[in-house]
């Protein structure tokens, strides 16, 4: 088995386990994916190195929010590559960096070609963006993130139902993606 297909098999299994409800597998999936994304973006944003970490987070958020478009009968590599490339092109378009758009197209295997665990600091602080969210979305996200609480604990702390906490986190992360991308 080549290295790429070994990565594909491992990450795909972690994502599918995560989508079946295994939080630890999902955490590992996102963690490993972020390293591949970082290496991928770093090689392609040589002129915008400060944007790499923002784009990694933005792409992770997109992967998370749209993960239900991944179906068990499809390979992971083209899915992850298509999202990474979409977010990359989106960023370049926003930056109106015409030159960078002319970089040659690469093939989808490039997305898992290298892995980079050394995160630079993101320029944009997602936590600050959270302040713009309505209370019932911000509170569950803050409790679960900052305090590291479970859904049950966060629900008790916030005085909300468990499903309201889940809906709040879900909607909040969707709204966050919109704020970051400036999508209409």
């Amino acid at each position: 088995m080549s290295e790429n297909s070994a990565i594909e098999a491992r990450l795909r299994r972690l994502l599918l386990e995560g989508m079946a409800g295994d939080a630890a597998a999902y955490h590992r999936f996102l963690d490993e994916l972020s390293a591949y994304l970082r290496a991928y973006f770093r090689r392609r944003l040589t002129r915008l190195p400060d944007d790499v970490e923002d784009l990694v987070q933005e792409t992770l958020l997109a992967v998370h929010n749209q993960r239900y478009t991944f179906e068990a009968d499809q390979p992971l590599t083209p899915w992850a590559y298509a999202i990474a490339r979409y977010k990359l092109v989106d960023l370049l378009r926003r930056r109106a960096d015409r030159e960078a758009l002319h970089e040659p197209l690469d093939d989808e295997l490039a997305v898992f070609a290298a892995s980079d665990h050394e995160a630079a600091d993101a320029r944009r602080d997602v936590l600050k963006l959270l302040d713009a969210l309505p209370e019932k979305q911000r509170l569950p996200i803050r409790l679960m993130k900052l305090e590291g609480l479970s859904v049950v604990e966060a629900a008790r702390m916030a005085g909300m139902s468990e499903s309201a906490v889940k809906v709040g986190v879900h909607r909040g992360l969707k709204a966050l993606a919109k704020m970051i991308g400036g999508a209409p």
Partner: peptide, 19 residues
């Protein structure tokens, strides 16, 4: 926010997904 914290946030907001 650092990316590994961000990953933890997303993983906490995970859970089972319908196909």
């Amino acid at each position: 926010m650092k990316t590994d914290e961000f990953v933890s946030l997303l993983a906490a907001g995970g859970g089972a997904v319908e196909s």
